[in-house]
Nucleic acid binder design. Sequence first.
DNA 1: CTCTAGATAAACT
DNA 2: GTTTATCTAGAGT
Length: 185
Amino acid sequence: MSDTPLAERIAGLDAVTLARRLVGAELLVRGAGGVIIETEAYGRDDPASHSFRGPTRRNASMFGPAGHAYVYRSYGIHLCLNVVAGPGEAVLIRALAPTTGIYLMQARRRGSLLLCSGPGRLAEALGIRIEDDGAPFDGTGFSLTLPSSMPELLAGPRIGISKAQDLPWRFGLAGAEGLSRPFPR
DNA sequence: CTCTAGATAAACT
DNA sequence: GTTTATCTAGAGT
């Protein structure tokens, strides 16, 4: 519909608003991807966020321009993909419903049926590399297409954190298959 | 792998 | 006595 750049369309959005808006969006990375069904918001003044204690070499792109990727290594082995929102804020992409490049993603996931369910699996299926840290979602490799209308959302506490466990900053697409974990009722 | 927090050691006044 | 530097174990969107 619109060809307005993503950066303009999300300008000024805080991480929670962007996390809600990205559910239902189409994410493509070099010809593979699908519809985002699960996100988490990480804020600037958020004890669970990598940005909480200010910029470091690893989290530098969280303080860069909105609409770019923040890719970090998790547990020394996985990679995780985020979309940068406002300064020091980002949205973790936790699960996709695969639609495009499924053959490629199956090959990268070496036969696992869980193609994009969970942030580490998603990054592997999409072929995310650590060098993608800071890359723009501008259609040159990475693209994001926001949904025209907001779908019905689920909300709950974020996964795998020890701080700020009360905040319902994990969002999911109601009824979606492939959520990394169910949402509490 | 990257970073933090706690512990220990070194340097300073 | 106080501050700063260095080491290391443990956690980690």
